[in-house]
């Protein structure tokens, strides 16, 4: 324990040395690539539970990856703080394993399967974004637009048979949906990067396209090469994460470990502790 405390004391001394610097650490060009994983849940109401909480769920794996590039400065004194950039993120989710529930005739409950239709099928999402703003020592503000293009894995389609009854036909596989959206993206950092600071962001940096697109973090630089983020998301799930960063010669490696606190769905009031864990990692290079 004493050794651990000594290490942190040394890191603290390095932190004090850093506070004398007065330059945004993220000035210049920056390229970030990231990827992550979470457990995607699909909830449903199961009337076989006797109490008031009928919520139940099934789950599947979901992955995401992304890239973001940012450029700052355009050779003019007046444009030194000006930033422009763009990014893309891709999300992929497997089909849900259907849950088949028996009928309870005495209570009038029919046999049921969850989830059904497109909700049961795997889906994907491609986000493409552009943004611009200013990055000063004390703050950074960047605004932009993100296009969300969504699709799904159509495994079956319902068809009319020759006798007029309904039947199943093979689906078309992975297809684009018609529910694309254009949303604003947003990034605000308050506080210099060489001392503890806070960042609020929507669809920016290392985000989870479905479970964590609105997030915030407090960054604590402990030394020139080591920093800690304590953060969380607000949409579509509430979450907590801890993210250590290691930097070396412009390269920055981080690992984000966290857990979902709240799925914003009444069917998920009692989700197992381990099912809520998620992990992601990012590698960036600044020059």
């Amino acid at each position: 324990m004493k050794k651990i405390l000594m290490v942190f004391m040394i890191l603290g001394l390095a932190s004090a040395e850093l506070s004398a610097q007065n330059k945004p650490a993220n000035s210049g060009n920056k390229l970030l690539v990231f990827g992550g994983y979470h457990n995607q849940l699909s909830g449903f109401s199961n009337p076989r539970y006797v109490g008031s909480d009928k919520g139940d769920y099934t789950n599947t794996l979901a992955w995401y990856s992304g890239v973001e590039y940012q450029h700052q400065g355009f050779g003019s004194e007046y444009l030194d703080s000006f930033t422009v950039g763009g990014g893309a993120a891709f999300y992929l989710q497997n089909d849900f394993t259907p849950v088949n529930l028996y009928a309870v005739p005495s209570l009038g409950i029919p046999a049921q399967s969850f989830p059904t239709g497109t909700a049961a099928q795997g889906n994907f999402q491609l986000n493409v974004s552009g943004f611009a703003g200013i990055n000063e020592n004390w703050y950074a503000v960047e605004l932009g637009l993100t296009v969300l293009m969504q699709g799904y894995n159509e495994t079956t389609r319902q068809v009319y048979l020759a006798d007029g009854t309904l039947g199943q036909a093979a689906g078309r596989g992975w297809v684009w949906g018609d529910n694309s959206l254009i949303l604003p993206n947003f990034y605000v950092r308050l506080g210099p990067t060489n001392i503890p600071n806070i960042t609020f962001e929507i669809l920016r940096e290392q985000y989870d396209p479905t479970y964590g697109s609105v997030l915030a973090y407090v960054r604590i630089p402990a030394s020139k090469s080591f920093a800690f983020d304590l953060g969380g998301s607000f949409y579509s799930t509430y979450s907590f994460f801890l993210e250590p960063h290691y930097s070396w010669n412009g390269l920055n490696l981080n690992v984000r470990l966290g857990t979902t606190l709240n799925y914003n769905d009444p069917n998920f009031s009692r989700v197992g502790v381990f099912e809520g864990f998620f992990i992601s990692s990012g590698l960036s290079y600044s020059w």
Binding site: Y49, D53, S239, N262, F268, S269
Partner: peptide, 25 residues
């Protein structure tokens, strides 16, 4: 939890547990 014949089986256990519906960032 209700069985197919209408009788009851042990469903979710009671006790202190994490309520995700009432947890927030």
């Amino acid at each position: 939890y209700t069985n197919a014949d209408g009788t009851f089986a042990t469903g979710r256990a009671g006790g202190m547990g994490w309520s995700r519906e009432a947890s927030y960032t």
